[in-house]
Design a protein around this nucleic acid. Sequence first.
DNA 1: CAAAATCTATTTGTATACTAACGAGTTTTC
DNA 2: GAAAACTCGTTAGTATACAAATAGATTTTG
Lengths: 135, 135
Amino acid sequence: MNYQLDEQVGFVLRKATQRHLGIFADNIPDFTPTQFAALAKLCELGQVSQNELGRKTAMDAATIKGVIDRLRKRDLVATTRDPNDQRRLFVQPTKEGRETYLNFEQAAHNITRETLAPLDATEQQIFVKMLGKLV
Amino acid sequence: MNYQLDEQVGFVLRKATQRHLGIFADNIPDFTPTQFAALAKLCELGQVSQNELGRKTAMDAATIKGVIDRLRKRDLVATTRDPNDQRRLFVQPTKEGRETYLNFEQAAHNITRETLAPLDATEQQIFVKMLGKLV
DNA sequence: CAAAATCTATTTGTATACTAACGAGTTTTC
DNA sequence: GAAAACTCGTTAGTATACAAATAGATTTTG
């Protein structure tokens, strides 16, 4: 059998994520990765319902709710009811939200670069491609 | 600039982890990955202090404490004071803990296999090797 | 059209994870 | 040998994540 924890994908995946989270926090201390993902996606889309934003950022309904709550508390996003569907809550970035996002866009690129830095250019391409298959 | 969330390593990494967590839950519903990691490492080492176990399983002191608390509540691990160092808390697997671990060892292997299934044998080797570099 | 099914957001509960601060015990250093 | 530095475990606080349950609103179906 010989189960070696340190060789299991899940374990290494978790450690790689931890390292990435550290790099993220160093480059963008103002946001968590999920918060930044939500804001970035929102700036890209302009206006979406809360749940749909969750789907596009890989967060379930309960998670995206908390994230939007925190971003709204900082006036980076605003919410309005969909007049055509009383269930839906539209979310939009505020002017401040858009500005803040743009201020960190370069830093976000650096995070990706730094995370992949241990691999050379060719390896990076292969790795990201393979990782994409595991989703 | 053109920041595409879906192309950032961190985001894909998170989605890959989510998929893996789902596979884990399907195969071993009795444990979370961290709980199983702690139990597995403990069965491998026999006896270690709580904090050292945390280091070997990539959990900080606060996290490993909660994990050990939950495993102890289920009588899968036991703790004793180190007589030579009053600060240290030794942790050992109980008989039941060892048995439970062995019962799931095969399932744990299956989790790794299933997680990597989208890649062929050669790709799997390369991927795990590259992932290891990102830690 | 009415019942069933679906979708929306919310709430509650559990489990990571990290930071920061703490008290108590142990080593190191001068 | 006393002060400084470090280590150990704990606690409190914040932020993901997911499951399950709920309440309303909307769509689909028979």
